[in-house]
Amino acid sequence: MTVNDPDQDLVARVGRGDPAAIQALVARKLPRMLQLAHRMLNDAVEAEDVAQEVFLRAWKQAPSWVPGAARFDTWLHRVALNLCYDRLRRRREQPMAEPPEQVDTGPAPDRDLLARDTRDRVTAALGALPERQREAVVLCHYQELGNIEAAGLMGVSVEALESLLSRGRRALRAALADLKE
């Protein structure tokens, strides 16, 4: 079965070393990869490391990329998720003395404190979700992947994915119940 990949032509041009295509791929995918890693790891510095590593692998892969078997975007997600899970595993094995430092990447300082407080609490609540629930929410809500694609990346059935999503969203709602008023 072949898949319809909107990135196919771009990846082929990247594989030929086309500088404009490289710029375009970075503009299209770097924000997605950075946000995916940031939401999975809740750490700005580690997220940048992961995003860089994803692209290093993309540069190696592009010249030999065979279109039709999978979407390039799905492949990027798989690479990024594997890198995130490597880092989460290392965290479990070597607990940090202090939580990761958060870099302020949010709205400008003239935004009111309430908005900032909400943003920080939601980010923290997302980071506190069990990993699989967080992964499901990140892939489906933020990355906007379809159910089959997300379930395939996670190695679960669509029904299991929906269950993880529901539980994750319920947990977030419960943790942030006071913010909804």
Partner: peptide
């Protein structure tokens, strides 16, 4: 709406430049 309120980091120019600089054509 709660989910949309979470931090949504954008890549810095330095990160973008670093990634592009390591592409084969660069």
């Amino acid at each position: 709406a709660l989910l949309d309120a979470a931090v949504s980091p954008a890549p810095s120019a330095a990160l973008r430049d670093h990634v592009i600089a390591r592409a084969p054509a660069a």
